[in-house]
Design a protein around this nucleic acid. Sequence first.
RNA 1: GUGGCCGUAGCUCAGUUGGUUAGAGCGCCUGGUUGUGGUCCAGGAGGCCGGGGGUUCAAAUCCCCUCGGCCACCCCA
Length: 409
Amino acid sequence: MSNLQPPRGTADILPQDQRRHRHVTDTAQAIAGRYGFEEMSTPIFEATEVFKRTLGETSDIVTKEMYVFDDKKGRSITLRPEGTAGVARAFITHLRSEPLPLKFFYRGPMFRYERMQKGRQRQFHQFGVELLGVPQPLGDVEAIAMGAHILEALGVADKVTLQINTLGDAECREAYREKLVTYLEGFRSDLSEDSLERLGRNPLRIFDSKDESDRAVVKNAPRLIDHLNQASTDFFDAVKGGLDAAGVAYEINPGLVRGLDYYGHTAFEFVTKTLGAQGTVLAGGRYDGLIQLMGGPPTPGIGWAAGVERLALMTAEAPPAPRPVTIIPRDPAAQTQALVLAQQLRRGGLAVDLGYSGNLKKRLDRANKAGATAAVILDGDSATVRDMETGEQTDVALAGLEDHLQRYR
RNA sequence: GUGGCCGUAGCUCAGUUGGUUAGAGCGCCUGGUUGUGGUCCAGGAGGCCGGGGGUUCAAAUCCCCUCGGCCACCCCA
């Protein structure tokens, strides 16, 4: 029994859940398409370097969450923990001289070695978008508006709020970081263990701490938002103005920081309170330096990723399974005739279920369990169509059957 | 990685201070119906009580380890 369980943090997605997941990604895909985004897929694993360099050596993902292993030739391989690095890599290897901008979306599994919680697994699925080659804040606005649009289409907009922040450009972020660290150094003894850790790695994170003592320290700390240079301020203002114009509601959260090193300027998260501690449902930001950092041509980018499982948990009802029409030969020896008829109707666009064995009673029972809208009881040249909702039966000549069944599509 | 709670039929759960053949509802199967589903009635199958070790005359129940889940921290989708 124990070895028949899927590995920790993974899950079998059975049809009912799969329908929810599909609903999420299909909805996202349809709307992304309206914004001119096209699907692409990158490998599920990459050379470890691809993630190490892009996510930052000190990020949590790289230091403790990656699935890393050596392949048979001794190359270090990593199961992708996120999607942007792979898309950026693919851009560099194939698309660097394509006319910009480029708009992609992707969907698929991601892997992070983490402790389980609701809405958090070791293998999970993301739907993400990347917009490459747009340095203007309009790109940020459009990407965020598209995210909001998708959440609205999924019917979860009222359970979600958008938080935005700016991380500034590289220049002012560095200058600010030094100021902040200097300030925090003065309160070393008041900081929590976690925050001392963060001090070296990602001091901005300390603003997010839930520790009482940390909060007190941070209360009077210098804020990035007060240390932005003019260019960064203008950029942020333009993003906010654009969101206002597009009718996308947001709140500014100065504590919002991206965990990955490649982000700059805009950072945003759509969060919900309905999923416990895992409130983030769709999040992203601008990553202008990433592609160059990976050895590609300087190319600005902005993107986000949404957690499919989390969104599926939030959507109320799974879309119903398609309901077939079932073909039942009155004489079991007419099985082949039933098969031929089923094929013909399927070619005509109907969902058709074939009873495989058993008597009429048993087959009707199965048809009922399969959710059939109607049963076609085949008897020589004619057929009786039984409406499975009302129980009403109509005799139909085989020639007119396909027409008659149109009402059950 | 840290801390807390939990693990009994396919599913949701009950199981008294350790004490004989471990229960219910739903689901599943069969029959009532010599060829018509859903409702109803009757019957039936199905549990090494997550796994391993220990304490005891006796363990689903107590202890340890392990696997898995939930919750919080960390971090994130």
